[in-house]
Computed example of a mutant assay.
Amino acid sequence: MERNFDGTVIRATGSWYDVRTDGGEVVPCRIRGRLRLEGRRSTNPVVVGDRVVCRTDEGGDSLIEEIRPRRNYVIRRASNLSKESHIIAANIDRALLVVTLREPETAPEFVDRFLVTCEAYKVPATLLLSKIDLQDAEAVAAFRTVYEAAGYRVLETAAPQGEGLDAVWELLAGRTTLVAGNSGVGKSTLIRAIDPTLDIRTGAISESHRKGRHTTTFSAMYPLAGGGAVIDTPGIKGFGLIDIDGAELWHYFPEMLREAGACRFYNCTHTHEPGCAVVEAVREGRIALSRYESYLKILDEDEKYRK
C-alpha cells in the first residue's frame, strides 16, 4: 500500500537510512537519486537528524523524497584540500565534544576548529574531559582555564567509575545532543554509561600508536530512557573548516569577539594592525595564546584553499 510520511533520520550508512516516523515506527529507506544531484557539495546529502518526507510505494520500498530545511548542523571539510563537505549531524540542540589530554591526546587545534564550526552554525557546544582518572591534573587545570575563559563549559568524567555522569545526564536530558571527538576518547563508553540499555559497542586503544580504534561505524541517533536523544558518531581524525570567510573568522572565537570592539580599525584582522585590542589581550593573558595560534593557523589554511 502506497503512503507518504514524515520522520527523522536516526541512522545513516551511506546507502540505507533508518527513518523514525512521527508515530515511532522505524522504516529503512533509500534516497531518491535526484537528492544526490541537486548541486550539493556535501558527500552525504542526507544526515542523521534530518527531518525528511518519505514515500512507501506499492512494492513496499521506501524512499526519502525531500529534506526539510535544517535548523543547524555541524560540518567539516571532507578531506585535505577537498572542496566537498561532510555534514556530521543536523537539527541538534547541543554538541558535546569529548576530549582526552592523553591516551589518546586530542590536539588543541582540533578542539578549536570544532568550536569555530559550532559557533558559525549556531550550535551550542560543551567540552567534556573524558577518562579524567588517567589525565594529568595540571594539564586538566590548564585546559579548563583556557576554555572557561573563552566562555565554554567544561565537564569531567570517568565513565566506567560513574564519576561526573550526573552533570552529563543533566546536560543531555530532553535535548538532541551530538557526541563527537577523536577515536578512542570514550564517546560510546560515555553514552552506554549514561543509558546502559543502549546497544553501543566500545573498543580499546591501539597499543602500537596509542590511538583509538573506530568502534562506531556509522552515525546513529539513540533515544535516552529519560527523554532526549544522543547522536553517536564515528571518531573524527581531522576537522577542516569549510565555508567560513577568513574576514569573519574572529567572530567565532567568543573571547576575541569580546575584545575586538576596542580595536583601532573597524576592519582589523587581529594579525598585524597597530592598536589591535585582541593582540593586546593575548599579550596580557586575557586570550589564551593557544587559541590565538589556532586562529592564525586557520587563517593561513583559508588562504591556501582560496588559491
Rank of each mutant, 00 (worst) to 15 (best):
E65W: 06
E65G: 02
R68E: 15
P69C: 06
P69R: 00
I75Y: 01
R77F: 05
A78T: 06
L81G: 07
S82H: 04
S82T: 09
K83Y: 13
K83F: 13
K83L: 14
E84R: 15
E84T: 02
I88W: 10
I88D: 07
A89V: 09
N91C: 10
N91H: 07
R94C: 14
A95F: 04
L97G: 00
V98M: 04
V99K: 00
V99M: 03
L101M: 07
E105Q: 14
P108A: 05
F110D: 08
V111T: 08
F114A: 11
F114K: 00
F114W: 06
V116F: 05
T117P: 00
C118A: 14
C118E: 05
E119T: 04
E119A: 14
K122P: 00
V123M: 02
V123P: 00
P124G: 10
A125S: 14
A125D: 10
L128M: 12
L128G: 03
L128W: 08
D133S: 11
L134N: 05
L134S: 12
Q135M: 15
Q135R: 12
D136W: 01
A137G: 00
A137S: 14
A139D: 15
V140K: 03
A141Y: 01
A142H: 10
F143Y: 15
Y147P: 06
A149C: 06
G151T: 00
G151P: 06
G151K: 04
V154W: 03
E156T: 07
T157H: 04
T157M: 09
P160T: 12
E163K: 11
E163C: 00
L165C: 07
D166E: 15
D166T: 14
D166V: 11
E170T: 15
L171C: 08
L171W: 07
A173T: 13
R175E: 15
V179N: 09
G181C: 09
N182I: 09
K187I: 07
S188F: 10
T189H: 11
T189L: 13
L190N: 11
L190I: 13
R192I: 09
R192G: 07
I194W: 02
D195L: 14
P196R: 00
D199T: 08
D199K: 14
R201W: 00
R201C: 01
T202C: 04
